[in-house]
């Protein structure tokens, strides 16, 4: 099976006063269709930069990113057709929704940009999506500030789903939420994957969460991927010292996590 997303030798460098800083260095990463790959690491290790490079928000310094075999790192960035295949869920559900737009408009926006269907069809699709992510479709006339953090993240997920992408990159989608709400949002993502076959690149600093949710895990440390493998494997047998530190840093006993 060919990977849906294939990252090779990807580097991203920032120029600073003290010389270049490598936020991402020589990263190789694959995501297969329909699977969830967890990307874990401490804050500042480059996982968000990697995610932003993939969707073209941050320019990469070198390497290759292929989506379905087609290169994304061209001079013009990802094409509209390529963008349709991959969407992004942001970390902060308060900052990632335009405060002056109504929820229905926010969810419709991707369809408007890609000119999919008639305006009436787009509105119907937005209502369907709201229902799908667990929001009442009649709430579409409201503004984002009228919703809770978890509900807002559902809006963000509905917006990402609007184009029926094959890959959704989730940049710490639940770390800004309460623990109980985290579980609800992760369960929603899981249900959507079963139903739609969408693949996730799930970024988190919470190894316990990734272990449950992802089939494969990549551990990132100081801009490099230091360990990659199936979740169970990494959990049982961490080879890199940093992975061991991460596992030891989990405060809760393992039995309790089964409640997810």
């Amino acid at each position: 099976m060919t990977p849906l997303l294939s990252v090779r030798d990807l580097s991203c460098r920032y120029e600073t006063r003290d010389g270049p800083l490598w936020a991402v260095r020589d990263v190789d990463l694959d995501v297969m269709p329909g699977e969830t790959v967890g990307l874990v690491g401490e804050s500042g290790c480059g996982k968000s930069t990697l995610a932003r490079c993939i969707v073209g928000l941050t320019p990469a310094s070198g390497g290759s990113i292929r989506l379905d075999g087609e290169e994304l790192l061209t001079r013009r960035g990802p094409s509209l057709a390529q963008r349709r295949q991959m969407q992004f869920v942001f970390q902060d559900p308060f900052a990632s929704l335009n405060p002056r737009r109504r929820v229905e408009a926010l969810i419709r926006e991707p369809l408007d940009v890609h000119r999919i269907g008639t305006p009436a069809e787009r509105t119907r699709r937005a209502r369907e999506l709201m229902e799908r992510v667990g929001l009442h479709p009649d709430w579409g006339r409201r503004f984002p500030h009228e919703f809770s953090g978890g509900q807002r993240q559902r809006i963000g997920i509905a917006r990402a789903l609007a184009l029926s992408p094959r890959l959704i990159i989730c940049d710490e989608p639940v770390s800004a939420l309460d623990v109980s709400v985290q579980a609800q949002v992760v369960n929603l993502l899981d249900a959507l994957q079963r139903e739609l076959g969408v693949a996730y690149l799930f970024i988190s600093h919470d190894l316990a969460l990734v272990e449950i949710f992802a089939q494969r895990v990549a551990v990132m440390y100081q801009g490099r991927i230091v360990e990659q493998g199936s979740s169970a494997e990494i959990w049982r047998n961490p080879s890199h010292p940093f992975t061991r530190t991460l596992i030891e840093a989990i405060p809760i006993p393992r039995v309790d996590q089964r409640s997810f």
Binding site: R83, R84, F90, S96, P99, E109, P110, R159
Partner: peptide, 10 residues
């Protein structure tokens, strides 16, 4: 982020 999310949708 809401501006960047519009860049992501193209």
């Amino acid at each position: 982020e809401f501006v960047q999310s519009c860049r992501v949708i193209g």
